Computed example of a mutant assay.
Amino acid sequence: MTVIVRALSADAPRAAADDAGFAAVRRACVPAMLATPASVAFDRAQAHPDSGYRQLIAEVDGEIIGTAQVGLAYDSPEPGQGFANVYVHPERLGRGAGTLLLRTAEEYLAGAGAQTVYSWVLDSPANLAFAARHGYAARRSAHFLRLDLAHGTLPPREAPPAGVELVSGSVFADDARPFFALDAETVADEPSDVAAEFTDYEHWLAETWHHPLVSRELTTVALVDGVPAAFSLARADGAGRYASGMTGTARAHRGRGLAKAAKNDSLHRAREAGYTEAFTGNDAGNEPMLAINKWFGYEICDTEVRHVRTLG
């Protein structure tokens, strides 16, 4: 059976089925990464023009068995960096889909001016060996963590510190600039191989704030004197699964437990809304957030290793 790789497009005759198949493969490979047909279509439509973002699928006889997210790190101060994250359905391995997806992605990135390619690889012997065979060197690791909201025990809600107010992200529905400023500051300090900067508010609105998986109602923001000081951005798939999109604190307010308070409040909001599973992710070296998540009762459910290859 021949494997065919092609890029997703809103104009394709099977666009809806393609988006559904793409999301299904992602859920099968990495359950902690929320994906729905609507989010797949949204990510493609709202990608920044400078990112060159592409969604690739590998299919056999019309069945989608693998996916790749490919693009350029347009928001990095260092030019020439690309990414290619490849996933093949665990029940469809050994057909060459991963190799063909990666080759297609690398050829596209090279043509777009990328000099290095970063890729997240699941931490399993087979996946790590695949990356090594294709010339990728391991870098940092990141963990996915899961919390059983339906049967686990959340720490009780506690009153925030004096002068701090916990509010829903929906407070910023009409003007999200204060939230954007806080998100940009925390992202700049996030451990990563590829530095990122948020400077385009309008694009952030389109790509993040209006994303179909983002729940403003379940998001919690800690205000200090009416100004956002910490937050926990909530993502939800509408089918019982909740994920922390980002949790962070402004530099001037770190060390006060505000991120923990915001995340606890957001998790309680999610459980009260009927969500049964909560997921989050942390860089393996981010000990403060790993400690906070352990306190909540999260357990590591999967690990990915960032790999890099120089094109030449």
Rank of each mutant, 00 (worst) to 15 (best):
A38Y: 03
L102V: 05
G245W: 03
V227L: 04
V25Y: 00
R177E: 15
V3I: 13
G82R: 00
T2D: 14
G52T: 02
R251T: 13
L233E: 01
F83E: 01
K263A: 08
G66P: 00
L56I: 06
E202R: 12
V187Q: 07
N282A: 13
H253S: 11
G240P: 01
A47N: 06
I57D: 01
P79D: 14
G80M: 04
A20T: 13
Q69E: 15
K263W: 02
P37G: 10
H151A: 15
W204V: 07
S192N: 14
E299M: 09
V60F: 06
L205K: 11
G312H: 13
E158N: 11
G285Q: 09
E304K: 02
M33R: 07
M33Q: 14
G113P: 04
H210E: 12
S76D: 09
G21V: 00
V86S: 01
S9I: 09
N286G: 05
V86D: 00
I65G: 02
R27L: 09
R14T: 14
A41F: 01
D265G: 03
G135Q: 04
A259E: 05
A17L: 12
H253F: 14
G96Y: 06
V308F: 10
M246E: 09
R235W: 10
S119Y: 01
F42T: 02
L223G: 06
A252E: 15
G255D: 09
L258Y: 05
R14Y: 06
T36R: 02
T310E: 10
V30G: 00
L223Q: 07
Q115R: 13
A273T: 08
P37W: 10
S168F: 02
L93D: 02
A47E: 07
Y74D: 08
L93E: 14
Y136W: 12
L267W: 07
G21T: 01
P228R: 03
M1I: 09
P79M: 10
G245Q: 03
V164K: 08
A159L: 08
R92S: 09
